[in-house]
Amino acid sequence: MSLIIDEGPRQTSERPPKDTEPFSRLVSPHDRRRRVVRIGLRITEIVVLLLLIAFCAGPILWMLKAAVSPSSDIVARPLSLWPSENRFGNLGEALSGLEIGRYLLNSVYLAGGCLVVQLIVSTSAGFALSVLKPRYGKVMYAMILATLLVPATVSLVPLYLTAQRMPGLGVNLINSFWAIWLPAGANAFNVLLVKRFFDGIPAELYEAARVDGAGPLTLLWRIVLPMSRPVLAVVSLFTLIAAWKEFLWPLIALTDPQKQPIAVALPTIAKTSDQGLLIAGLLLASVPPLLLFIAFQRQVVNGVGGDTGSKG
Protein backbone atom coordinates (compact mmCIF):
# COMPACT_ATOMS: atom_id res chain seq x y z
CA MET A 1 0.00 0.00 0.00
CA SER A 2 2.26 2.70 1.22
CA LEU A 3 5.19 3.46 -0.96
CA ILE A 4 8.63 4.51 -0.03
CA ILE A 5 8.49 6.75 2.98
CA ASP A 6 10.91 9.59 3.12
CA GLU A 7 13.00 9.78 6.23
CA GLY A 8 12.46 12.54 8.75
CA PRO A 9 9.69 15.09 8.94
CA ARG A 10 8.67 16.70 5.71
CA GLN A 11 9.68 20.25 4.92
CA THR A 12 6.96 22.54 6.10
CA SER A 13 8.82 25.80 6.48
CA GLU A 14 7.39 27.60 3.47
CA ARG A 15 3.84 26.98 4.58
CA PRO A 16 2.00 29.23 6.96
CA PRO A 17 2.40 27.69 10.40
CA LYS A 18 -1.31 27.38 11.10
CA ASP A 19 -2.01 25.51 7.90
CA THR A 20 -1.35 21.89 8.59
CA GLU A 21 -3.30 20.65 5.59
CA PRO A 22 -1.02 20.57 2.60
CA PHE A 23 -2.54 21.95 -0.55
CA SER A 24 -1.38 22.69 -4.02
CA ARG A 25 -0.74 26.18 -5.43
CA LEU A 26 -2.54 25.28 -8.63
CA VAL A 27 -5.14 27.87 -7.73
CA SER A 28 -3.31 30.96 -6.56
CA PRO A 29 -4.54 33.48 -3.99
CA HIS A 30 -4.93 35.86 -6.87
CA ASP A 31 -7.27 33.43 -8.65
CA ARG A 32 -9.29 33.03 -5.54
CA ARG A 33 -10.09 36.71 -5.52
CA ARG A 34 -11.87 36.30 -8.85
CA ARG A 35 -15.59 35.78 -8.57
CA VAL A 36 -15.88 33.16 -11.32
CA VAL A 37 -13.12 31.06 -9.82
CA ARG A 38 -14.55 31.37 -6.35
CA ILE A 39 -17.99 30.26 -7.39
CA GLY A 40 -16.63 27.53 -9.65
CA LEU A 41 -14.47 26.18 -6.86
CA ARG A 42 -17.32 26.30 -4.41
CA ILE A 43 -19.64 24.40 -6.75
CA THR A 44 -17.10 21.67 -7.48
CA GLU A 45 -16.36 21.44 -3.76
CA ILE A 46 -19.99 20.81 -2.98
CA VAL A 47 -20.58 18.44 -5.89
CA VAL A 48 -17.49 16.39 -5.12
CA LEU A 49 -18.37 16.26 -1.44
CA LEU A 50 -21.85 15.00 -2.22
CA LEU A 51 -20.48 12.42 -4.64
CA LEU A 52 -17.95 11.24 -2.09
CA ILE A 53 -20.64 10.90 0.53
CA ALA A 54 -22.86 8.95 -1.85
CA PHE A 55 -20.24 6.78 -3.48
CA CYS A 56 -17.62 6.22 -0.77
CA ALA A 57 -19.55 6.53 2.46
CA GLY A 58 -22.98 5.57 1.09
CA PRO A 59 -22.51 1.79 1.08
CA ILE A 60 -20.99 1.94 4.55
CA LEU A 61 -23.83 4.07 5.90
CA TRP A 62 -26.30 1.67 4.33
CA MET A 63 -24.52 -1.18 6.07
CA LEU A 64 -24.80 0.70 9.37
CA LYS A 65 -28.52 1.11 8.88
CA ALA A 66 -29.20 -2.39 7.62
CA ALA A 67 -27.23 -3.95 10.47
CA VAL A 68 -29.83 -2.73 12.94
CA SER A 69 -32.87 -3.31 10.73
CA PRO A 70 -35.12 -6.35 10.45
CA SER A 71 -34.16 -8.63 7.55
CA SER A 72 -37.39 -7.87 5.75
CA ASP A 73 -36.25 -4.25 5.34
CA ILE A 74 -33.32 -5.30 3.19
CA VAL A 75 -35.58 -6.73 0.53
CA ALA A 76 -38.72 -4.69 1.01
CA ARG A 77 -37.38 -1.19 1.63
CA PRO A 78 -33.66 -0.97 0.89
CA LEU A 79 -33.96 2.75 0.19
CA SER A 80 -35.43 3.83 3.50
CA LEU A 81 -33.16 6.10 5.47
CA TRP A 82 -34.16 4.71 8.82
CA PRO A 83 -34.91 1.15 10.03
CA SER A 84 -38.62 0.34 10.29
CA GLU A 85 -37.81 -0.82 13.80
CA ASN A 86 -34.51 -0.81 15.65
CA ARG A 87 -32.91 -4.18 15.92
CA PHE A 88 -29.75 -3.58 17.86
CA GLY A 89 -30.16 -7.16 18.96
CA ASN A 90 -28.89 -8.18 15.52
CA LEU A 91 -25.38 -7.26 16.58
CA GLY A 92 -25.44 -9.32 19.75
CA GLU A 93 -27.09 -12.19 17.96
CA ALA A 94 -24.45 -12.11 15.24
CA LEU A 95 -21.68 -12.01 17.83
CA SER A 96 -22.91 -15.07 19.66
CA GLY A 97 -25.25 -16.91 17.30
CA LEU A 98 -23.04 -16.70 14.23
CA GLU A 99 -19.96 -16.89 16.43
CA ILE A 100 -18.71 -13.67 14.88
CA GLY A 101 -17.11 -12.92 18.21
CA ARG A 102 -14.78 -15.87 17.88
CA TYR A 103 -13.90 -15.04 14.29
CA LEU A 104 -13.13 -11.47 15.29
CA LEU A 105 -10.91 -12.71 18.07
CA ASN A 106 -9.13 -14.98 15.62
CA SER A 107 -8.57 -11.98 13.36
CA VAL A 108 -7.15 -9.96 16.24
CA TYR A 109 -4.89 -12.80 17.16
CA LEU A 110 -3.72 -13.26 13.58
CA ALA A 111 -3.10 -9.57 13.00
CA GLY A 112 -1.21 -9.26 16.28
CA GLY A 113 1.05 -12.19 15.46
CA CYS A 114 1.72 -10.87 11.96
CA LEU A 115 2.67 -7.53 13.47
CA VAL A 116 5.15 -9.06 15.90
CA VAL A 117 6.76 -11.26 13.26
CA GLN A 118 7.00 -8.48 10.71
CA LEU A 119 8.51 -6.05 13.22
CA ILE A 120 11.10 -8.59 14.29
CA VAL A 121 12.06 -9.50 10.75
CA SER A 122 12.10 -6.01 9.32
CA THR A 123 13.97 -4.32 12.17
CA SER A 124 16.56 -7.04 12.63
CA ALA A 125 17.17 -7.40 8.90
CA GLY A 126 17.07 -3.65 8.36
CA PHE A 127 19.58 -3.16 11.13
CA ALA A 128 21.95 -5.83 9.82
CA LEU A 129 21.79 -4.57 6.27
CA SER A 130 21.86 -0.86 6.99
CA VAL A 131 24.13 -0.58 10.02
CA LEU A 132 26.28 -3.71 10.23
CA LYS A 133 26.69 -3.92 6.46
CA PRO A 134 28.11 -7.43 6.16
CA ARG A 135 30.01 -8.30 2.99
CA TYR A 136 27.16 -10.43 1.69
CA GLY A 137 24.65 -7.70 2.56
CA LYS A 138 24.14 -6.47 -0.98
CA VAL A 139 23.42 -9.96 -2.28
CA MET A 140 21.04 -10.65 0.55
CA TYR A 141 19.22 -7.37 0.07
CA ALA A 142 18.92 -8.04 -3.64
CA MET A 143 17.47 -11.48 -2.92
CA ILE A 144 14.94 -9.99 -0.55
CA LEU A 145 13.98 -7.30 -3.02
CA ALA A 146 13.72 -9.87 -5.78
CA THR A 147 10.72 -11.38 -4.01
CA LEU A 148 8.90 -8.13 -4.73
CA LEU A 149 9.09 -9.06 -8.38
CA VAL A 150 7.10 -12.24 -7.93
CA PRO A 151 3.65 -11.58 -6.56
CA ALA A 152 2.71 -13.75 -3.62
CA THR A 153 -0.31 -15.25 -5.35
CA VAL A 154 1.90 -16.87 -7.94
CA SER A 155 3.69 -19.08 -5.44
CA LEU A 156 0.46 -19.88 -3.67
CA VAL A 157 0.49 -23.59 -4.39
CA PRO A 158 4.13 -24.29 -3.45
CA LEU A 159 3.75 -22.03 -0.43
CA TYR A 160 0.86 -24.18 0.65
CA LEU A 161 2.87 -27.35 0.15
CA THR A 162 5.77 -25.83 2.09
CA ALA A 163 3.55 -24.85 4.98
CA GLN A 164 1.96 -28.26 5.22
CA ARG A 165 5.38 -29.91 5.40
CA MET A 166 8.30 -27.61 6.07
CA PRO A 167 11.43 -29.01 4.46
CA GLY A 168 13.99 -30.13 7.01
CA LEU A 169 11.63 -29.63 9.93
CA GLY A 170 8.79 -31.85 8.76
CA VAL A 171 6.42 -29.51 10.57
CA ASN A 172 2.86 -29.01 9.39
CA LEU A 173 1.68 -25.44 9.91
CA ILE A 174 -1.66 -25.77 8.17
CA ASN A 175 -4.58 -25.03 10.47
CA SER A 176 -2.31 -23.38 13.00
CA PHE A 177 -1.89 -19.62 13.31
CA TRP A 178 1.79 -19.99 12.55
CA ALA A 179 0.80 -20.71 8.97
CA ILE A 180 -0.25 -17.07 8.74
CA TRP A 181 2.24 -15.47 11.10
CA LEU A 182 5.48 -16.84 9.75
CA PRO A 183 4.90 -16.25 6.02
CA ALA A 184 3.82 -12.72 6.94
CA GLY A 185 7.45 -12.13 7.95
CA ALA A 186 8.59 -12.56 4.38
CA ASN A 187 7.51 -9.04 3.52
CA ALA A 188 10.24 -7.47 1.42
CA PHE A 189 8.47 -4.17 1.36
CA ASN A 190 8.71 -3.68 5.10
CA VAL A 191 12.38 -4.63 5.08
CA LEU A 192 12.96 -2.08 2.34
CA LEU A 193 11.02 0.59 4.20
CA VAL A 194 12.82 0.03 7.48
CA LYS A 195 16.25 -0.32 5.95
CA ARG A 196 15.86 2.90 4.02
CA PHE A 197 14.82 4.67 7.16
CA PHE A 198 17.82 3.28 9.05
CA ASP A 199 20.05 4.41 6.20
CA GLY A 200 18.97 7.94 6.94
CA ILE A 201 20.16 7.85 10.55
CA PRO A 202 23.55 9.63 10.63
CA ALA A 203 26.38 7.12 10.90
CA GLU A 204 28.15 9.33 13.44
CA LEU A 205 25.60 8.30 16.03
CA TYR A 206 26.66 4.67 15.84
CA GLU A 207 30.30 5.52 15.89
CA ALA A 208 29.86 7.60 18.99
CA ALA A 209 28.05 4.80 20.72
CA ARG A 210 30.58 2.22 19.62
CA VAL A 211 33.33 4.25 21.16
CA ASP A 212 31.36 4.09 24.37
CA GLY A 213 31.58 0.33 24.10
CA ALA A 214 28.09 -0.38 22.79
CA GLY A 215 27.58 -3.70 21.04
CA PRO A 216 25.26 -4.16 18.06
CA LEU A 217 22.31 -5.08 20.26
CA THR A 218 22.72 -1.90 22.30
CA LEU A 219 22.97 0.09 19.10
CA LEU A 220 19.67 -1.34 17.96
CA TRP A 221 17.85 -0.75 21.28
CA ARG A 222 19.39 2.51 22.33
CA ILE A 223 19.74 4.38 19.11
CA VAL A 224 18.07 2.85 16.09
CA LEU A 225 14.72 1.75 17.45
CA PRO A 226 13.93 4.87 19.50
CA MET A 227 14.69 6.99 16.47
CA SER A 228 12.61 4.84 14.18
CA ARG A 229 9.27 5.23 15.81
CA PRO A 230 7.72 7.05 12.86
CA VAL A 231 8.58 4.33 10.38
CA LEU A 232 7.75 1.54 12.80
CA ALA A 233 4.39 3.15 13.43
CA VAL A 234 3.66 3.22 9.72
CA VAL A 235 4.84 -0.35 9.22
CA SER A 236 2.77 -1.51 12.18
CA LEU A 237 -0.34 0.27 11.04
CA PHE A 238 -0.21 -1.09 7.55
CA THR A 239 0.71 -4.56 8.72
CA LEU A 240 -2.32 -4.63 10.98
CA ILE A 241 -4.64 -3.36 8.28
CA ALA A 242 -3.27 -5.75 5.68
CA ALA A 243 -3.49 -8.71 8.05
CA TRP A 244 -7.09 -7.87 8.86
CA LYS A 245 -7.96 -7.71 5.18
CA GLU A 246 -6.14 -10.81 4.04
CA PHE A 247 -8.40 -13.37 2.42
CA LEU A 248 -6.84 -15.82 -0.01
CA TRP A 249 -4.01 -17.24 2.09
CA PRO A 250 -6.01 -17.74 5.31
CA LEU A 251 -8.79 -19.25 3.19
CA ILE A 252 -6.37 -21.93 2.10
CA ALA A 253 -4.20 -22.30 5.17
CA LEU A 254 -6.92 -22.28 7.83
CA THR A 255 -9.74 -24.61 6.91
CA ASP A 256 -10.69 -25.35 10.49
CA PRO A 257 -13.68 -23.08 11.14
CA GLN A 258 -12.57 -22.73 14.76
CA LYS A 259 -9.44 -20.89 13.62
CA GLN A 260 -10.65 -18.87 10.69
CA PRO A 261 -10.46 -15.10 10.76
CA ILE A 262 -13.54 -13.05 10.07
CA ALA A 263 -12.63 -12.33 6.45
CA VAL A 264 -12.64 -16.04 5.64
CA ALA A 265 -15.67 -16.90 7.73
CA LEU A 266 -17.96 -14.22 6.30
CA PRO A 267 -18.52 -15.76 2.84
CA THR A 268 -19.59 -19.01 4.47
CA ILE A 269 -21.86 -17.15 6.84
CA ALA A 270 -23.27 -15.26 3.86
CA LYS A 271 -24.38 -18.50 2.26
CA THR A 272 -26.01 -20.00 5.29
CA SER A 273 -27.49 -17.30 7.45
CA ASP A 274 -30.18 -14.71 7.61
CA GLN A 275 -29.31 -11.56 5.68
CA GLY A 276 -29.97 -9.17 8.54
CA LEU A 277 -27.57 -11.04 10.77
CA LEU A 278 -25.04 -11.25 7.96
CA ILE A 279 -25.00 -7.49 7.56
CA ALA A 280 -24.56 -7.13 11.30
CA GLY A 281 -21.59 -9.45 10.87
CA LEU A 282 -20.20 -7.35 8.02
CA LEU A 283 -20.46 -4.28 10.20
CA LEU A 284 -18.72 -5.96 13.12
CA ALA A 285 -15.91 -7.05 10.83
CA SER A 286 -15.47 -3.46 9.68
CA VAL A 287 -15.47 -1.82 13.09
CA PRO A 288 -11.90 -2.62 14.17
CA PRO A 289 -10.20 -1.28 11.01
CA LEU A 290 -12.49 1.74 11.00
CA LEU A 291 -11.61 2.48 14.63
CA LEU A 292 -7.95 2.11 13.77
CA PHE A 293 -8.46 4.55 10.93
CA ILE A 294 -10.23 7.10 13.12
CA ALA A 295 -7.52 6.86 15.76
CA PHE A 296 -4.57 7.04 13.38
CA GLN A 297 -6.06 8.90 10.47
CA ARG A 298 -3.10 11.19 10.01
CA GLN A 299 -0.52 8.41 10.06
CA VAL A 300 -2.55 6.36 7.60
CA VAL A 301 -3.05 9.24 5.22
CA ASN A 302 0.56 10.33 5.43
CA GLY A 303 1.74 6.76 5.11
CA VAL A 304 -0.25 6.20 1.94
CA GLY A 305 0.55 9.56 0.45
CA GLY A 306 4.13 9.47 1.69
CA ASP A 307 6.95 10.14 -0.70
CA THR A 308 6.40 7.89 -3.64
CA GLY A 309 10.02 7.75 -4.53
CA SER A 310 9.36 10.05 -7.41
CA LYS A 311 10.54 13.57 -7.44
CA GLY A 312 7.65 15.96 -6.96
Partner: peptide, 14 residues
Protein backbone atom coordinates in the same frame (compact mmCIF):
# COMPACT_ATOMS: atom_id res chain seq x y z
CA UNK B 1 8.91 -13.66 21.07
CA UNK B 2 11.84 -14.96 19.06
CA UNK B 3 12.15 -17.94 21.35
CA UNK B 4 8.43 -18.59 21.11
CA UNK B 5 8.61 -18.32 17.38
CA UNK B 6 11.22 -21.04 17.14
CA UNK B 7 9.87 -23.33 19.83
CA UNK B 8 6.29 -22.79 18.85
CA UNK B 9 6.79 -23.60 15.23
CA UNK B 10 8.35 -26.90 16.19
CA UNK B 11 5.64 -27.61 18.73
CA UNK B 12 3.03 -27.01 16.07
CA UNK B 13 4.21 -30.25 14.58
CA UNK B 14 1.31 -32.58 14.34
Amino acid sequence: VMACALVGSVAACS
